[in-house]
């Protein structure tokens, strides 16, 4: 079901409540998920339905041909901001952690095996799981999320990283480095999905 722009989370929550036996994913983008529909994110996290939200972040409004999105970096020139985007971008991983999500991960479209592993884990996670995927818009973004750029920016989580340590997860999320992998996973006993 391709829902209204920004409203995937409520619709997915409703479907899951109605048919708990279904596996439900909500696939959103940075424009709808962090823009028009961002208000649903904290509340979905709070209610903690057993659904998986994947946020495909291309840092641009691609469908409307290249306007500034909530993930477009400050000062980047776009169609809607020819003098440069005046506002800083958002941090979806930090948001999800702050709101209390029980499963938070980041992946990169150039690393499909890792993505697949994160999706599987996220779906298996009992409760709301949030996966931030950095995914280039090859048509309208010629400066920011290029495959080459992203490949040089992403880092694997350090060896021995404990994904159940929330403080560490916040540090990782706040840092400038773009770590990919499972950043935080609440110990399963505390997941408490509904």
């Amino acid at each position: 079901m391709h829902t209204l722009h920004g409203r995937a989370l409520p619709v997915a929550s409703g479907a899951k409540l109605a048919r708990p036996e279904l596996t439900v994913l909500a696939l959103v983008g940075d424009g709808d998920g962090l823009g028009i529909g961002a208000g649903h994110l904290p509340h979905t996290i709070r209610r903690n339905p057993d659904i998986t939200c994947v946020l495909f972040d291309n840092a641009i409004y691609g469908l409307t041909k290249g306007q500034t999105s909530p993930m477009t970096p400050q000062h980047q020139i776009t169609r809607s901001h020819p003098m440069g985007n005046p506002d800083p971008k958002m941090n979806p991983v930090l948001l999800a952690l702050s709101y209390g999500a029980g499963y938070v991960a980041r992946g990169f479209a150039g690393a499909p095996d890792e993505m697949q592993r994160l999706f599987e884990e996220g779906i298996r996670h009992k409760g709301f799981s949030f996966i931030h995927i950095m995914s280039p818009c090859v048509t309208f973004d010629k400066v920011n999320y290029l495959y080459d750029n992203l490949r040089s920016w992403v880092r694997l989580l350090p060896a021995g990283y404990d994904s159940t340590n929330l403080d560490r997860a916040f540090e990782i999320a706040r840092g400038v480095e773009l770590f990919t992998g499972l950043i935080y996973s609440k110990p399963s006993l505390e997941q408490g999905a509904r």
Binding site: M1, T3, L4, R7, L9, P10, V11, A12, S13, G14, A15, K16, L17, A18, R19, L22, G39, H40, P42, H43
Partner: peptide, 18 residues
């Protein structure tokens, strides 16, 4: 829900789910 949009969204999801 957090607002009426979410409320009708939930109902839509459930309706879709049958």
């Amino acid at each position: 829900t957090e607002d009426e949009i979410s409320a009708i969204g939930h109902v839509t999801g459930a309706g879709f789910a049958g």
